[in-house]
């Protein structure tokens, strides 16, 4: 309920939704994915990295995956990224 309120507030003032408490932001480059707003690492292996975003879970699937940086709610994943799933 609280999340819905903050979401409608951000929409009303035309602000990006990742500013909310459970908001997240994913950027994908050539061989790098930057995930903002992740809470935990649920699964970490060579082929898949599953990150907890609060209400959603993002899975980065590929080969030779490396967490280049993990701090302040931001994770930078490097490697051969094949797919990104949000569930």
């Amino acid at each position: 309920m609280k999340n819905k309120k903050s979401s409608s507030f951000l929409q009303r003032f035309d602000l990006p939704e990742d500013l909310s408490k459970n908001g997240y932001h994913i950027e994908i480059f050539n061989s790098c994915a930057v995930v903002d707003g992740c809470k935990n690492v649920n699964e970490y292996s060579d082929g898949v990295i599953r990150l907890d975003l609060g209400q959603n879970i993002v899975s980065v699937i590929g080969n030779n995956l490396t967490i280049r940086c993990f701090s302040c709610g931001q994770a930078t994943i490097d490697g051969r990224i094949a797919a990104v799933e949000i569930s």
């Binding site: 935990n40 970490y44 060579d46 967490i67 940086c69 993990f70 701090s71």
Partner: peptide, 28 residues
């Protein structure tokens, strides 16, 4: 549990980078 280790490091504000997973172990 490597995932729990990474999460605990995040909680204790311990910076980690270049986390690479191999078969049965990881380096960071």
């Amino acid at each position: 549990f490597s995932e729990r280790f990474i999460n605990l490091c995040s909680v204790y504000d311990i910076p980690l980078w270049n986390i690479t997973y191999y078969n049965g172990y990881f380096t960071a």
